[in-house]
Amino acid sequence: MSIFTRGFSGRGRDNNPALPPGQYLTEDFPVLSAGPTPRIDTDVWEFTITTESGTVHRWNWEQLMALPIEDIHTDIHCVTRWSKLATGWRGVSLDTLFADVDTSYEYVMEHSYGGYTTNVPLADLLDGQAWIAFEFEGEPLDPEHGGPARLLLPHLYFWKSAKWIRGLTMMAEDQPGFWEQNGYHMYGDPFKEERYW
């Protein structure tokens, strides 16, 4: 059944086809975090990929910066319904980081400093779809937005782009991460509005 809301006309009218259903444009950069913002010094920062064999691939900040760095121009979509179009980032492709990783597992748990987790299929991290990002619009990434480095996985709702990223762990089967255990969708495609369970 459909109802009308008397007196409501709407004045945003964001007809941009780049905007997924149910989203509105913002020029702002809202912050959503479940707890206090961790402060991570790049001197102690490290990023790891851990596979089923127990092998740990490890990069410190200096090693990350020595890898090929890409400029990324992309739209981002938060499950709380704001979207930002044509944002600019710099980061290292996950294709580069996975180049020497040997795994037969198809799912990944992202782990953050501060304990946050979120799950994603490996296929969504590869083929030019995901980065470890450390600059936003020409500036070092603010801690509130996940600095010094966050995952950038823009084709899924932005909670899948873990802030303060510290590592990826390969998983045999898809397991729910933090928000996924608290009511959010296992995959999170914004164009299919995969918001909640």
């Binding site: 913002t26 950069f29 912050v31 959503l32 479940a34 707890g35 206090p36 961790p38 501060g114 937005h145």
Partner: peptide, 13 residues
């Protein structure tokens, strides 16, 4: 303990 502090924010930074 940060794990015992839950936050909800609105607006940009």
């Amino acid at each position: 303990d940060p794990a015992r502090v839950k936050t909800e924010r609105f607006g940009g930074a």
